[in-house]
Write a protein that binds this DNA or RNA. Structure first.
Length: 884
RNA sequence: GCCCGGAUGGUGGAAUGGUAGACACGCUGGACUUAAAAUCCAGUGGCCAUUGCGGCUGUGGGGGUUCAAGUCCCCCUCCGGGUACCA
């Protein structure tokens, strides 16, 4: 009996397709729902790689398991199909991106079906489908029409925004401006990153540390352009607090926390000497105010022009120009070498009325805090470095908490920077009624903050690193904004009933002038005239790829609905997502953006939960072996010959080192799932990906390992597909115990996503059963059931061969029977001083005194302690330790 | 620099503080075969001993807690990921 996986897999894939086995019913009568979600893929032209099925198989096992446990399971799949490659291909060939996209989706769909993943294909969605992006546009209109009420901490309809009376008095234009300034979506000038190579604006998040574009690797530069922005910082606090309740990996939560970057401190006003101006600074260390010896304004700060002394004007202007030319690359490269210029003007330190110089330096960023700082060189590394370079005063006001006297003296003398806790010195001004001397940091902050507030020169303040989200791209292949810019300078959004606003057909997909979107060329589409003859131009930017993926999990709930975004009752039933599995590369962006949109929709009553994803899990990356020379040069895998476990360059004969690396075209170490399926079968592919190691770990692909799981499946088939091996009547006790242990282990492991050990447990059971050569029909059925979520094609086939006529997909999951789990005796290890020496067969649950007597009498034990009476530690049913 | 992970045989990996190396690959030997593949059986961390029992050593390195440490604590090295003039 040969295990013909190709035939079996084809047969059952057709069966599932024909019978719509995995079609999800909106059966609200079943209170046990389970919404399990994969991060939907971008359908690239190169098709699926083996990384995709890793997460999909994990969710498939859980989905199939939950169905067998009686859950109503929602398991959908779709395509995040807007994106650059299809557009670039269109530029080169003139092929419409939709054509390319659909072709790629077809490939992905075929490949996914060939893995036997149990998706409900009737719920397939595609972000480029107008029936889908109609609702993406609809959400955008909602964002535009929402403001954030900081009193109740929630988003509200813009119609409910209270407009101050003086604004109303100032006229309609002022009123309009005020309202626009509060919308969650706004259109404004933005200093943005521009990629000259892609001819596209990039979000901050898309620019790498080295100043290159994440997508193409080329340098980006800064530009000032009108862009759509989303005011995500309003939700910073809720995005931060919401993390607490989520069952997400700690690392991901931490990354989101860091990204949001909450800090507490105070804003403090400094008078400018000789000008009727104040410099407002943000500081997390108001307690170090006595140590502030100079101030710094960001080059972009509006006060720079006002307060620069005439004598310094030229130097300052030159500096501003130089700073504006600097890319972030230069700024980071020069991270250690600070630059700046003196404005010639002084400010007054409010605690001691000292005159301190005001400088301009690009290490202070306009985008964070107030764009101005008070510099405390004695207690801030950056300020210290700057002060040393430019010879500014360094006044120590905090005696450090250390015993090293030499270091302490250096710090007090202002020769070294100290940022930790200590005791304040030189921090007293009785005239002003403020004394910090003798306090520690915590008390110091509280005392000075209260003083600042009382004096009306400072307020406690929370700051976030999170910035407004740049939400437009100069692309064709994205969701058009439902926006018209009128000739009178106003903006209006389309009426909901006019959605979707579809993309026009284009002859060429080249970007427009000055980096404008290709849509600028679509003149018929572009210009509109309203009833009164007013002319307008449509927004030519499109939305970023995040837009479609921000809410796709909601559309799966009711994908065909063209009246509403989704049916409210269905949303209430299915949300939130119970388990979401995908790569860690989306740790911050996708997951933060989605949570933001979700919270806005929650505030507006569109969704019923505050958070979308209850449990998140990140699969590790699948790597592959690659080869490099002694000099470290990478060698493509087709240039490598193996001999006696060593690797040689086919041409040069040089011995190569095997390394583990990401799969890449250049290393020619990409594994294609189609090949794996044709050689080993889909069930083997699934099983191997789960058996390789823990789901969360990065691990290298090794074809030899696939053979091992194929062997296991073939052995299962050989044992169970042969009627002669299936007996009726009572089961052998050893097999029975092994079976129930396996059921328990596999059940627990699926719940905890420990698939590798679940599979090894099944292997152990099979080895036991193969030794006996026969199992009862009941045993066979139980084993087939627990195997089926992992290897569903084989599961169905064996289920049929053991006399069943229905699909195994909804057969109740077996339960481990406690009676069979415990043996009556066990091999008890006996260790001496913690080192295992021998084993004794002992009845389970034997009283400790009896265990002790048996051990003391054993001659193998006596060998160690002779006639002495040793101390014996007994861990019941576990181990015995003899202490000498 | 900071934050978060990680380091266990030839390889992937397993181990509620309680028998380190489950399971699998690979390798070695054997059975079957004209032969090979497939399959089955046995062995397989290292060192020593092997006529028999066995002994020593071993989870990146160094300390510590414990009857007992891969697991807990302290210090260090290396690797991976994130992030960076955020005041």
């Amino acid at each position: 009996m040969d295990y013909n996986f190709s035939e079996i897999e084809k047969k059952w894939q057709e069966y599932w397709e024909k019978n719509k086995t995995f079609k999800t019913s909106d059966d609200f009568s079943n209170p046990n729902k389970f919404y399990i979600l994969d991060m939907f893929p971008y359908p690239s032209g190169s098709g699926l790689h083996v990384g995709h099925p890793e997460g999909y198989t994990a969710t498939d096992i859980v989905a199939r398991y939950k169905r067998m446990r009686g859950f109503n399971v929602l398991r959908p799949m779709g395509w995040d199909a807007f994106g650059l490659p299809a557009e670039q291909y269109a530029i080169q060939t003139g092929t419409h991106p939709a054509v390319t996209t659909n072709k790629n989706c077809d490939t992905f769909r075929r490949q996914i079906k060939e893995i036997g993943l149990s998706y409900d294909w009737d719920r397939e969605i595609n972000t480029t489908d107008p029936g889908y992006f109609k609702w993406t546009q609809w959400i955008f209109i909602r964002l535009y029409n929402t403001w954030y009420d900081e009193k109740t901490n929630r988003g509200r309809d813009i119609k409910e925004l209270p407009v101050p009376i003086d604004v109303i008095k100032a006229g309609d234009k002022a009123r309009e401006e005020y309202i626009n300034s509060r919308r969650l979506a706004y259109y404004d000038d933005a200093q943005i990153w521009y990629c000259p190579s892609c001819r596209i604006v990039c979000a901050n998040e898309e620019v790498l540390n080295d100043g290159t574009h994440e997508k193409c690797g080329n340098r980006v530069s800064k530009r000032n352009l009108k862009q759509w922005m989303l005011r995500i910082p309003y939700y910073a606090e809720r995005l931060l607090n919401g993390l607490e309740s989520l069952d997400w990996p700690e690392g991901i939560k931490e990354m989101q926390r860091n990204w949001i970057g909450r800090s507490t401190g105070a804003e403090v006003d400094f008078r400018v000497d000789g000008y009727n101006e104040k410099i407002c600074v943000y500081t997390t260390r108001p307690d170090t105010l006595f140590g502030a010896t100079y101030m710094v304004l960001a080059p972009e700060h509006p006060l720079v022009a006002k307060i620069t002394a005439p004598s310094m004007r030229q130097i300052v202007e030159e500096y501003l120009i130089a700073a504006s030319m600097k890319s972030d690359l230069d700024r980071t490269d020069l991270a250690k070498e600070k630059s700046g210029v003196f404005t010639g003007t002084y400010a007054i330190n409010p605690v001691n009325n000292k005159k301190i110089p005001v400088w301009v330096a690009d290490y202070v960023l306009m985008g964070y805090g107030t764009g101005a700082i008070m510099a405390v060189p004695a207690h801030d590394e950056r300020d210290f470095e700057f002060a040393e370079k430019f010879g500014l005063a360094i006044d120590c006001i905090l005696s450090p908490d250390i015993t090293d006297e030499e270091q302490k003296n250096r710090i007090i003398a202002g020769k070294e920077c100290w940022t930790e806790d200590g005791e304040y010195i030189n921090s007293s001004n009785p005239e002003a009624g403020i004394t910090l001397n003798g306090l520690n940091k915590e008390k110091g902050i509280a005392t000075i903050t209260a003083w600042l507030e009382k004096k009306g020169i400072g307020v406690p303040r929370v700051n976030y690193k999170l910035r407004d989200w740049l939400f437009s791209r100069q692309r064709y292949w994205g969701e058009p904004f439902p926006v018209i810019h009128w000739e009178d300078g106003t903006i209006s959004l389309l009426d909901e009933n006019d959605l979707p606003l579809e993309l026009p057909e284009l002859a060429v997909y080249e970007p427009g002038e000055n980096g404008e979107s290709p849509l600028a060329n679509a003149t018929d589409w572009l210009y509109v005239t309203d009833r009164n003859g007013r002319r307008g131009r449509r927004e030519t930017n499109t939305m970023p790829q995040w837009a479609g993926s921000c809410w796709y999990y909601l559309r799966f709930i009711d994908p065909g609905n063209n009246k509403e975004i989704f049916d409210r009752a269905r949303e209430k039933y299915w949300m939130p997502v119970d388990l979401y599995i995908g790569g860690a590369e989306h740790a911050v962006l996708h997951l933060l953006y989605s949570r933001f949109w979700h919270k806005v929709m929650f505030d507006l009553g569109i969704v019923s939960t505050d958070e979308p994803f209850i449990k998140l899990f990140n699969q590790g990356m699948i790597l592959a072996f690659a080869y490099e020379t002694a000099a470290g040069a990478k060698v493509s895998s087709d240039q490598v010959t193996e001999k006696d476990g060593k690797y040689f360059h086919t041409e040069t004969g040089e011995e190569l080192k095997q390394i583990v690396a990401k799969m890449s075209k250049s290393l020619k170490n990409v594994v294609n799932p189609d090949d794996v399926i044709s050689r080993y079968g889909a069930d083997s592919l699934r099983l191997y990906e789960m058996f390789m190691g823990p789901l969360e770990a990065a691990k290298p692909w090794d074809d030899k390992g696939v053979k091992g799981v194929l062997n296991f499946l073939a052995r299962s088939y050989r044992l169970l597909a042969n009627h002669e091996n299936i007996t009726e009547g009572d089961e052998d006790p050893e097999i029975l115990r092994s079976l129930h242990q396996t059921i328990k282990k596999v059940t627990d492991d699926i719940e905890n996503l420990h698939f590798n050990t679940a599979i090894s447990a099944m292997m152990i059971f099979l080895n036991t059963a193969m030794k006996k050569g026969k199992v009862t029909r009941d045993t066979a059925k139980s084993y087939i059931k627990i195997l089926s979520p992992f290897a569903p094609h084989l599961g169905e086939e064996l289920w049929q061969l053991t006399g069943n006529t229905t699909t195994i997909a909804f057969v109740p999951w077996p339960v481990a029977d406690q009676r069979y789990l415990k043996a009556s005796t066990f091999e008890c290890p006996v260790s001496v001083n913690g080192k295992m020496r021998f084993k004794i067969e002992l009845p389970t649950n034997l009283p400790q005194e009896e265990v002790r007597a048996i051990v003391l009498a054993d001659e193998r034990a006596r060998k160690w302690f002779g006639d002495a009476t040793p101390k014996i530690i007994i861990v019941p049913n576990r181990i015995v330790n003899i202490v000498l």
